[in-house]
Computed example of a mutant assay.
Amino acid sequence: MKTFVLTAVVLLVTLLGPASAGGGDDKDIYPRWSVVGAWSVTHPYWTDVLTFFDNGTFSATDETNSGRWTLTAQSGTPLLVLRWDRWGTESLMMVEQKHFRGQVSPGSFMDMRRGEAAGAQ
């Protein structure tokens, strides 16, 4: 019986992390990817930096263009949906971890890049 309980605790700690075993703080020790932060955007009609906030909002550099964002998935691929306050809705699929791309119109695309990848357009 003792072996079973010890094995169950080890398995629980392995799956959920050490903080869930009790006695530790509840801080997430595993790194998580997030869309939050600054992204360089190239659109067929404009270029700017969009900043995404953890409260589900985003804004452009001039702060006059803003909206709400949602990160979901389509066929297992992350999909970022931008709901602009003054414009329509645009959707961008993740190409790689630091790059999203969405079709604005036939043959026209919006690219969003983060970090060093932002200059490599």
Rank of each mutant, 00 (worst) to 15 (best):
K2Q: 07
K2C: 03
T3G: 14
F4D: 13
F4I: 13
V5H: 10
T7F: 03
T7Q: 10
A8T: 09
V9T: 13
V9E: 12
L11M: 14
L11K: 10
L12A: 15
L12I: 13
V13S: 11
V13C: 11
T14K: 11
T14D: 11
L15K: 13
L15D: 12
G17Y: 01
P18T: 07
P18S: 05
P18N: 12
A19V: 04
A19L: 00
A21S: 11
A21Y: 02
A21C: 08
G22C: 07
G22M: 08
G24F: 11
G24W: 08
D25I: 03
D25W: 03
D26T: 00
D26L: 05
K27C: 08
K27G: 06
K27F: 03
D28R: 06
I29E: 07
I29W: 06
Y30D: 01
P31A: 05
R32G: 09
W33T: 05
S34C: 06
V36L: 05
G37V: 07
G37F: 11
A38S: 15
A38D: 12
A38R: 02
W39D: 14
W39S: 10
S40C: 06
S40R: 02
T42I: 07
Y45Q: 08
Y45P: 00
W46G: 03
T47A: 11
D48P: 00
D48Q: 02
V49E: 06
V49C: 03
L50S: 09
F53A: 14
D54K: 07
D54M: 06
D54P: 11
D54F: 05
N55M: 01
G56H: 03
T57F: 08
F58S: 13
A60C: 10
T61P: 03
D62Y: 02
E63Y: 01
T64K: 13
N65G: 14
N65V: 15
N65I: 13
G67K: 03
G67I: 05
W69G: 15
W69Y: 15
W69C: 15
W69P: 14
T70L: 15
L71Y: 12
L71H: 12
T72G: 13
Q74R: 05
S75T: 09
T77K: 13
T77C: 10
P78N: 02
P78F: 03
P78D: 09
P78Y: 12
L79E: 11
L80D: 11
V81F: 10
W84C: 12
W87I: 09
G88Y: 03
T89I: 12
S91N: 05
S91F: 01
L92N: 02
L92S: 10
L92E: 07
M93P: 03
M93C: 04
M93R: 04
V95H: 00
V95E: 12
V95T: 06
E96N: 06
Q97F: 03
K98S: 14
K98W: 01
H99E: 05
G102I: 02
Q103A: 03
V104R: 02
S105G: 11
S105I: 08
P106W: 08
P106T: 10
P106Y: 09
G107Q: 08
G107V: 06
G107S: 10
G107W: 04
S108D: 12
S108N: 10
M110P: 01
M110V: 14
M112D: 14
R114W: 05
R114Q: 15
A117S: 15
A117R: 09
A117C: 04
A117F: 04
A118I: 09
G119E: 14
G119F: 06
A120R: 11
A120M: 04
A120L: 04
Q121L: 14
